[in-house]
Amino acid sequence: MRRRGEAGAGVRGCGGAGGPRDASRWWRLTLGAGLLVSVSAAAPLQAQRKVSAGYATTPDVSVRLFAAVGSVHVIGWDRDSVELTGSVAAGSKVALNAPQSGAAKGLKMFIEAPTEQAGREGALTMHVPRGARVWLKTGSADLTATDVTGGLDLNVVGGSITVHGSPRELRAESMDGAVTIDGAPEWMRVKTATGDIALRGGQDVGVSTISGTIDARGGEVDHLKLESTTGTIRFAPGLARGATVEMETHSAPIEIQLSRKASVDIDAATVTGEITNAWSGMRPSVGSEGRGMTLVSSGAPLGSRITVRSFKGKISLRPI
């Protein structure tokens, strides 16, 4: 259970969690002056291996972390504090926030490795209040976020992104790393260049890639848009009442799996590709010049709609 207002709880060396709200206020003021920041205060330091810092914060604190390390794990917890621990490559520049009096509303932390190789070493764990808004940017780190219900803005180049839980807002961008969202965020935007994307559900979801695959299965979707240039799109989640789903590709296959009982209108068109339909009895029609196909059905009572577009990618529908 969450214990908001217990500032300082969880900051190592400052006692455990607990105590009434007045005591928490006292702790905030006291700890604000004497917060533990064992690696660095305000100025960058050199040749640090261990990182350990803690801050009393508001429950919805905004945290910005740039970290050139091997992996970062962000964990939402029931405390109004942020704790950063772990190790980084020797010679890294570590710039952390200075201790503050009172609960911090915003934190900025920066860890820069001396070389590209060094930027793949070390691991950090950052605990944040569940409702925090976290902006995290790394190079080739594997990012994992767990149990954050606030906002996540995650950006990697070569590493992977994995999110467990359902943040209110999630933006995840990667160049060639894979992105896996194991939850159903209210608002989500995921982009990769070549990285594969896996998700299950969400309310307002937009996913885009050049050549990565998109795999959406499980959970339930409300408004969803999946698009790729050459990456295969697989769609198999449930549909909320009145759901709208758009899928678009240039040349990749789009594989749609639906429940036989799904109440949904289909509007599928491919310019030069092919459509196969094993989900319903409706047969796709061939384009007027003998190229391309369309499949249109309407009249679904619950008003869900799936729109599919491809240039030459094959579109297939089949039952789950």
Binding site: V157, G158, M175, D176, A193, T194, I210, S211, T229, T230, H250, S251, F311
Partner: peptide, 12 residues
């Protein structure tokens, strides 16, 4: 990675 993606996009 970026150049490869741009080539794919240009082709499409």
């Amino acid at each position: 990675t970026v150049e490869r993606s741009l080539r794919i996009a240009d082709s499409a």
